[in-house]
Design a binder for these strands. Sequence first.
DNA 1: CGGAAAACTCAAAACGTTTTAAATATGGTA
DNA 2: TACCATATTTAAAACGTTTTGAGTTTTCCG
Lengths: 349, 349
Amino acid sequence: MATLKDISAELGLSVATVSRALNGFPEVSARTRARVQEAADRLGYKPNRIAQRLVTGRSGMVGFIAKLNADMTADQTFLEILTGLTAALAERDVDLVLSVDQHDDPVTVYERMLERGILDGFILNAPVPNDPRVAFLQSRGIPFVMHGQSEPEVHYPFYGIDNRAVSRDAVGLLATLGHRRIALLNGDIRFSFAIDREEGFREAVAQEGLNTPEAFIGHETPSESYGYTEALAMLSGRRGAQPTAIVCGSTLIAAGVMRAAKDLGLSVPADLSLIAHDDALPQFRAVNFDPPLTVTRSPLRDACSPLANHLIDHIAGGEADTLQTRIRAELIVRESTGPVPKGGTDPWP
Amino acid sequence: MATLKDISAELGLSVATVSRALNGFPEVSARTRARVQEAADRLGYKPNRIAQRLVTGRSGMVGFIAKLNADMTADQTFLEILTGLTAALAERDVDLVLSVDQHDDPVTVYERMLERGILDGFILNAPVPNDPRVAFLQSRGIPFVMHGQSEPEVHYPFYGIDNRAVSRDAVGLLATLGHRRIALLNGDIRFSFAIDREEGFREAVAQEGLNTPEAFIGHETPSESYGYTEALAMLSGRRGAQPTAIVCGSTLIAAGVMRAAKDLGLSVPADLSLIAHDDALPQFRAVNFDPPLTVTRSPLRDACSPLANHLIDHIAGGEADTLQTRIRAELIVRESTGPVPKGGTDPWP
DNA sequence: CGGAAAACTCAAAACGTTTTAAATATGGTA
DNA sequence: TACCATATTTAAAACGTTTTGAGTTTTCCG
C-alpha cells in the first residue's frame, strides 16, 4: 500500500507538497501537480482513511442501522435501500457501516456505533413522529439525513415524497371517476409517512364532500395477507355498504386485495377500482398485475443517490435547510381504476 | 473526550504507563493501575479507536458483500446472516462494512473495497467450486472466513455444516421407513452446498441399493413456486412412477411441495413423505407446517458467532487449519414422514 | 550498608495524513 | 545589481494511541 512518503521519496518532494498536489491546493505548480498525479496513479496510491480521520476528524464512513420487525423480518424496502445506498455512496468514495437493531430502545444502537468514533454521520429511514433518534443525534451534533420527514417542518436534511399529495392524487382520481365510497388500506400508522397519507386521505375525501367510516380505514404493516383479509371483510358487506374503490399503501397490499376480489367474484375495475402507492421494488412490478395497477409511483431507488449526496454535503458543512428535498410522486393511470359501477353511487352516511 | 494525555497529566504519570495500566500489561504496579483506572473512569475515558487503529495497523472493520440475484432480490438467508453477524461482531468490537454486488465479475467489488485499505478481512458466503473470490483474496493475503466450503478440502477458515451428511440422514430415515422411490428438490446447483447435497443424496440412495432417475432430481433457486411446479410434475405421474418421498433443499421448497400434494388430493405423510433442510429462518417455521415438518436442522443464526470469531482470530494470527469447523445438522423427525404407502414399494428401474 | 536483580516508569518514535509557519526560488522593477 | 513581491516548496507539529529501549526506583540478599 503506497503512502504519501513513498510518492515524495520517489519524486524527491516533501510529503506536504504531495498532499497539497493531490488535494488540489492552488499553491502547487502545474508541473509538480502533474508529476505527483502521475506517480500516485502509477503507485496505486489511495489515502489511508484512518490517518485522514485522525487528523481531520472525518472518516469517510457513514452508518446505517436496519430496524427489524418484531418477527425478525425486515420490511420489503430494506434491501432496495441498501443496494442503492452503497452504490451512491461508493460514487462519492464513502463507505457504509451497517448494524442491525434488535433492541427496544431505538437509540442504543446509534449510541454504540458512535462510541467507536469512526462515523461521520448516519442515514435514517422510517421516521416516526417525534423521532427519538433525531433528538439524540441532534443533541450530539452528529450529521444525518432522513428518508422522509418525522414532522412536516423539520430542521435536518431529508429527501422524500409528499405523502399527503399521494393520497390527494389517489382520491382525486377516484372522485373524478365518480367514486363515493373510497376505502383506505394504509401502512403501519406508527410511521410518519402513513400518518401523512391518512391525514391527506381524510382531507381529500372531505374536500370531495364525502366521508369514509373508520371501519373502512385500515393501517397495518403491509403484507399480502393483510390486504386479503381486510379487503375480504370490507367487500363482503359485513361492515356495511361495500367500497367501490380502495386506496392501498403498497402494491403488496393491492395484491392481497386483488386476490380477495377474485375470490368474491368481483372484477377489477368493473366492480372495484384499485390504486396503490408503488415504491417500484423489482420483486413486485405493478405493470405485471392483472389488470395492470394504477399507482402513485416513486421508485425507492431514486431516493438513494440524493440521500447519499445530502448527507455528504451536510457533513462537509452544508446547511441543513438547503438540503431538504420533497418530491411529488407520479400518478400513473393504468387499468385497475375505472368509473364507479352503476349500483355504487351512494355515498356512505 | 478525555485522552491518555489528560489522564497522565491528572496523575503526573507518562502516557506510556497509563496506556499500559489500562491495557492490562503485567509490568505496572497494582497501586498505579488502580489510580489510573479510577481516573479513567472519573474522566470518562474511551480510547480513540482511530488512533489505536493507525498505530496497530488494524482497523477493526471487516467487509461483507451481498450478492444479489439477477432479478435484484436477495436470497432468503441474507438478512438472517446480516443480523447475526453484526451482533456477533459487535460483541468483539468489530464493525461491518457492507457493499452490494451488482456486477458480473464477483471479485471487482472486493477489489474496490480493498483499495481503501481499511478492512481487516472479509466474510464470504455462498461458495462455489473453485471460487474466484478465494483465489483473489488468497493472492492478496487478505484474511477471510467462509460460510461453508468451496471444496471438501480447503486451506482457509470456515464454518459450515456437513452437507453430504444432510442428504445421508434424510435418505437413511426414508429408507428405514421403507421408501424406495425418493426424489430430490435441491437448491441452485452452482453452489457448493447444493453439489454436496446432491452427491450425498446419490451416494446414500446407491448405498440403499436404490436408484433415482434424473427426472426426479431437480435443482433451482429455492422458492415456493419451484417446489409447487416440480412436485406437481413429479406427483402427477407424468414423469413415470410417482415418488413416495421427497427430500427438499429448503423449507420454502417444502411449502410448495405441500401445496402441490394438497392440490392433487395426496395426504402427507400417508401418501407422501416429506423432509427438508431447515435453516431455521424466523419467517418460516418448520414446526408450524401442517403436518409439522421433519427436517435436518441447522439454524443459520448459529453460524454467525463462530464465523465472526474465526475471522477475528484469524486476523489476530490464528492458523487457518485450526479455524475450520464443520458441524452436523440435527435430524428432527416430526409428522411429515411416515411408512411407505402400500402401493408404493416398487423401486424405480 | 552495598550491590545486584527485579519491578516499575518514562521519553521518544512510530502509524499516515493535514496544516501552519517558515524558507527558498522565481520574476519583475528600480 | 539590488531589492521586493510573489510563487512554490519545505520542515515540523499535530491528531491519540502503542511499543521500544532506556532509565529509575524498589526489593532482596549477603
